[in-house]
Computed example of a mutant assay.
Amino acid sequence: MADPAYRRKISRQLNKGESLHALKRDLLYAHEGTIRARHLEQQTEQAWCLTLVTNAVVTFTTGYYGLAVESMRRTGRRIDEEVLAHISPAHSENIDFFGAIDVDIEGDIEGDLAQLGPTGYRPLRVSDTLV
């Protein structure tokens, strides 16, 4: 515990774990972050659903982080791999928990696909926050 570099490494890992727990709490907002099912089987189902949704959010965010880093590098920005090692995609700022999701099975799929960029993702919202 006397090694400062080791303490920083452990602290970063704890912070990443805490951000993942915070994301799960945010995703489970309807029950105020608690599992309220009475039977073990129902509790297990709820936990697995939470895990599935959490993994989907982290995967989605990771994909867009990759696109953002690639876009920034194309514009000439230098992004250190050491800095990227400390970024965690476990956050919920990009999620609208109170919005409605409309699924139109018979809708205009071609129109929806036309809104996607050449990468197959929605275009990045670029704001020049880094100087």
Rank of each mutant, 00 (worst) to 15 (best):
residue 6 Y to N: 01
residue 119 T to S: 15
residue 78 R to V: 04
residue 61 T to I: 12
residue 25 R to L: 14
residue 22 A to R: 12
residue 72 M to I: 00
residue 112 D to V: 01
residue 88 S to G: 06
residue 71 S to E: 10
residue 64 Y to N: 07
residue 65 Y to C: 08
residue 50 L to N: 05
residue 43 Q to G: 13
residue 107 G to A: 03
residue 97 F to L: 15
residue 58 V to M: 13
residue 18 E to C: 05
residue 49 C to L: 14
residue 89 P to Q: 11
residue 128 D to L: 13
residue 105 I to V: 03
residue 122 R to L: 15
residue 95 I to S: 07
residue 108 D to H: 02
residue 72 M to P: 00
residue 121 Y to L: 09
residue 69 V to Y: 01
residue 121 Y to S: 11
residue 81 E to Y: 00
residue 122 R to M: 14
residue 81 E to R: 03
residue 15 N to T: 03
residue 120 G to E: 05
residue 44 T to D: 13
residue 15 N to Y: 03
residue 99 G to Y: 10
residue 30 A to K: 14
residue 24 K to Q: 15
residue 4 P to T: 05
residue 7 R to F: 04
residue 124 L to F: 06
residue 20 L to I: 12
residue 76 G to P: 02
residue 26 D to R: 13
residue 61 T to W: 07
residue 98 F to T: 11
residue 84 L to E: 03
residue 83 V to I: 05
residue 107 G to F: 00
residue 87 I to P: 02
residue 1 M to A: 09
residue 108 D to V: 03
residue 58 V to K: 10
residue 95 I to R: 12
residue 17 G to D: 11
residue 106 E to F: 01
residue 118 P to K: 15
residue 128 D to F: 10
residue 71 S to F: 01
residue 52 L to H: 10
residue 89 P to F: 08
residue 57 V to I: 14
residue 120 G to Y: 06
residue 43 Q to W: 08
residue 68 A to C: 01
residue 35 I to S: 05
residue 124 L to R: 05
residue 24 K to W: 06
residue 72 M to E: 04
residue 46 Q to N: 10
residue 40 L to R: 15
residue 21 H to A: 15
residue 80 D to I: 02
residue 40 L to W: 15
residue 92 S to G: 15
residue 25 R to M: 13
residue 87 I to V: 12
residue 86 H to Y: 04
residue 82 E to M: 01
residue 54 T to P: 04
residue 117 G to W: 11
residue 36 R to V: 11
residue 71 S to P: 00
residue 66 G to Q: 14
residue 46 Q to A: 15
residue 29 Y to R: 13
residue 46 Q to T: 13
residue 22 A to Q: 10
residue 79 I to S: 04
residue 5 A to R: 01
residue 27 L to P: 07
residue 59 T to Y: 07
residue 53 V to N: 06
residue 124 L to Q: 07
residue 39 H to R: 14
residue 79 I to G: 01
residue 84 L to S: 04
residue 11 S to A: 08
residue 70 E to P: 00
residue 83 V to N: 01
residue 18 E to M: 13
residue 61 T to L: 07
residue 24 K to T: 06
residue 91 H to M: 11
residue 27 L to R: 08
residue 97 F to D: 08
residue 54 T to F: 03
residue 39 H to D: 10
residue 48 W to Q: 15
residue 120 G to K: 06
residue 55 N to H: 06
residue 15 N to F: 02
residue 75 T to K: 05
residue 33 G to L: 10
residue 79 I to W: 00
residue 56 A to K: 07
residue 27 L to N: 09
residue 53 V to I: 14
residue 36 R to N: 09
residue 51 T to P: 01
residue 48 W to S: 12
residue 43 Q to D: 06
residue 119 T to F: 07
residue 32 E to P: 01
residue 10 I to W: 06
residue 42 Q to W: 10
residue 119 T to E: 15
residue 86 H to F: 02
residue 58 V to C: 13
residue 41 E to D: 14
residue 11 S to N: 06
residue 12 R to L: 07
residue 70 E to C: 04
residue 85 A to L: 10
residue 93 E to V: 08
residue 51 T to S: 11
residue 112 D to P: 00
residue 9 K to I: 02
residue 46 Q to P: 02
residue 92 S to C: 10
residue 120 G to L: 08
residue 79 I to Q: 02
residue 75 T to F: 00
residue 117 G to H: 14
residue 24 K to D: 11
residue 39 H to I: 07
residue 63 G to D: 10
residue 48 W to A: 15
residue 15 N to P: 00
residue 37 A to K: 12
residue 99 G to R: 13
residue 96 D to W: 09
residue 34 T to G: 05
residue 128 D to N: 14
